[in-house]
Nucleic acid binder design. Structure first.
Length: 107
DNA sequence: ACAGTGACTACAT
DNA sequence: AATGTAGCCACTG
């Protein structure tokens, strides 16, 4: 797949460890700021692509782990984030505003 | 080719 | 402040 999905995957793979980004930010970076849903759908396919995509670093604009149920893996999405230094309580990323990584700004 | 769908957001009640 | 509704666009059957 070399289209929208791949673009999303590439950006997500660029997210630095210990930081997170949002669907909207990625969508905007791709040019279609209103395709945030597509980003989510792309992530849904991310488990079957190579190399793997750190989908756990992508949350909604509130820093909420909305996709934790779709996440496939032995460890929970929250556990993975915590292991990278991101504090997560419940489904909410703590200090989300500080660790938010915006591809538009950072690139 | 058409309609349904979704890991989202923004606006309106 | 908290729900509800409505755009949004690429992908799939």
């Amino acid at each position: 797949m070399n289209d929208f999905y791949s673009q999303v995957f590439d950006i997500v793979r660029m997210v630095p460890k210990g930081r997170v980004t949002t669907y909207g930010a990625i969508a905007k970076a791709l040019g279609s700021g209103k395709s945030s849903r597509l980003v989510g759908i792309a992530m849904n396919h991310s488990h079957q692509v190579e190399p793997p995509v750190p989908a756990h670093r992508v949350v909604n604009r509130n820093g909420l782990l909305t996709g934790k149920h779709h996440f496939i893996g032995a460890l929970s999405m929250q556990q993975l984030l915590d292991a990278e230094g991101v504090m997560v309580i419940g489904d909410q990323v703590q200090d989300f505003r500080s660790i938010m990584w915006d591809p538009m700004v950072e690139l």
